[in-house]
Structure formats: structure tokens, C-alpha cells
């Protein structure tokens, strides 16, 4: 499988803390790569390095043959690598439709074309009934969908999803899993941070485990679930605290 995104030996330090420590990953074309790990393991920092929100102290990020680790976020998004935020950031003063229009305009300067595209993204994420509501009044589940719809509207080739299932009810979560699967079926490669074990195991082609900023293991979900290091570092821990 040819890879569309490679992280090579990326390291990010905050003072004495090494949040991301020499991590290397490859995301294959059309693949869903899950990223799991305890809170504070450095997953979101890794996303920040890839999406341009932060620069790595060492290492490189290559997207579609191009080094992007020193590019500002908007140029990276412009090339087709788009992220969502763990703490969703809706444009709360705008309506749901206007939110998605912002994404749709990226590749469609024509307002009527982008309108049609935004509507189809709203339909895809089931947000049509709330289209004219202000984004600030939405439920968490809808805000997560909105975050996704907005990112999708930019026609990404790689999508980074940061905990789109967290805080959702099991039903809402199951619906979201279906949405994510059909995004992949549409040809988008996905890097997915998730805490909900059952979902990420079912969803991912491969899973990477991050622990204390380091890549602890990477492989098929079945292998990861049996890996003694992973069980010790993360999965065992997970069973002691209440599952999400």
C-alpha cells in the first residue's frame, strides 16, 4: 500500500516534557489508522505537528511527497490534509449551513456551487434539519457532526479526526462510526484518535499505540489487543477506570 502521509522521527518537547518522542508512522492510501493511548500520551500533540498547528523540534512530516512540517495550517489544509478538533470549534455566531459553507468555499469560489456542496455535506452528516440554526445551540453530538461536515466540505484527501466519538451516547457513536466508514469508502485516508475501544478496534485497518509520547506498537487491531506491552500500558489501565 502506498502511503499518502508519513511522519518520520517526529519529536516535540515542552520544556522538560517530551510530548512526542521520535514517532514514525505511515498512513496508507485509503487506510483508517487508529491512534490510541492514555490521556496525555501525546496523541493530540502529534495531530498538531501533522496539521501545522505546531512545529516539531525534530523529524519531518511528508504529505503526498511534500515536506509540510514547517508550513502554516492553512497551506496544509489547502493541500488536502484537514483536521478536526478534540474540543470542537464551531463558528458559533454562524448558522450550521454557514459553518459548512466556509469549508465548501475552499475549492469552490462559485457561491452556488459551494452552496450545493455544503448542502450535500449536511445531508451526508444528517444535519439538514438544523441547517438554519445557530451553531451555538447544537447538542454535542450535532456539534461533532458539524465539525466533520465542515472538514469534509473542503474535499480532504487525508482527514485527522480527534475524538469524534467522545461524549456521544452509544447510539450516536454507532451512527458516527458508520459516517466515518463511508468517508473512507469515498476515498479519504483517515487518522483517527479515539478512546472508545470497541469502536476504534472495529473501525481501524491498523492501530498505533502511543505511550509517554513514544510509539509503543503498531499493527492490526487483533495483534494490538493481544500485545502484552499494550495491555500493560493501556488496555489494562482502561479496564480499571470506567469505560467511556
Amino acid at each position: 500500500m502506498s502511503s499518502i502521509l508519513s511522519v518520520r522521527n517526529a519529536t516535540k518537547r515542552f520544556g522538560g516534557l517530551t510530548a512526542v518522542d521520535n514517532v514514525s508512522l505511515e498512513l496508507g492510501q485509503g487506510e483508517i489508522l487508529g491512534i490510541i493511548g492514555p490521556n496525555g500520551a501525546g496523541k493530540t500533540t502529534l495531530f498538531n505537528l501533522i496539521s501545522g498547528a505546531m512545529r516539531p523540534d525534530e523529524g519531518e512530516v511528508v504529505f503526498d511527497g511534500e515536506r509540510i512540517e514547517r508550513m502554516p495550517p492553512h497551506l496544509i489544509a489547502g493541500r488536502g490534509l484537514v483536521r478536526t478538533f478534540q474540543v470542537v470549534k464551531p463558528f458559533s455566531g454562524l448558522t450550521v449551513f454557514e459553518n459548512v459553507m466556509v469549508g465548501a468555499f475552499l475549492r469552490r469560489p462559485d457561491p452556488l456551487e459551494s452552496e450545493a456542496h455544503a448542502l450535500s455535506m449536511l445531508e451526508f452528516t444528517g444535519l439538514i434539519p438544523s441547517a438554519d440554526r445557530p451553531a451555538k445551540g447544537l447538542t454535542l453530538a450535532s456539534r461533532k457532526r458539524l465539525e466533520l461536515a465542515r472538514a469534509l466540505a473542503t474535499d480532504p484527501r487525508v482527514l485527522l479526526l480527534d475524538e469524534v466519538l467522545a461524549g456521544l451516547t452509544p447510539t450516536e457513536g454507532a451512527e458516527m462510526v458508520e459516517v466515518v466508514k463511508s468517508i473512507r469508502d469515498g476515498g479519504v485516508s483517515l487518522l483517527v484518535i479515539e478512546h472508545v475501544m470497541a469502536a476504534i478496534m472495529a473501525l481501524s485497518d491498523r492501530i498505533a499505540v502511543i505511550h509517554h509520547g513514544e510509539l509503543l506498537a503498531i499493527g492490526k487491531p487483533a495483534q494490538i489487543a493481544k500485545d502484552p506491552r499494550v495491555v500493560e500500558a493501556y488496555l489494562g489501565e482502561e479496564f480499571q477506570i470506567a469505560p467511556d
Binding site: 498547528a53 492553512h74 489544509a77 484537514v82 466556509v102 469549508g103 465542515r150 472538514a151 473542503t154
Partner: peptide, 8 residues
């Protein structure tokens, strides 16, 4: 931040 994540 959200705007730049959408290519703006």
C-alpha cells in the same frame, strides 16, 4: 484556528 484548519 478553526478557520486556518479549513484552509483560510
Amino acid at each position: 484556528d478553526a478557520a486556518s484548519s479549513l484552509g483560510i
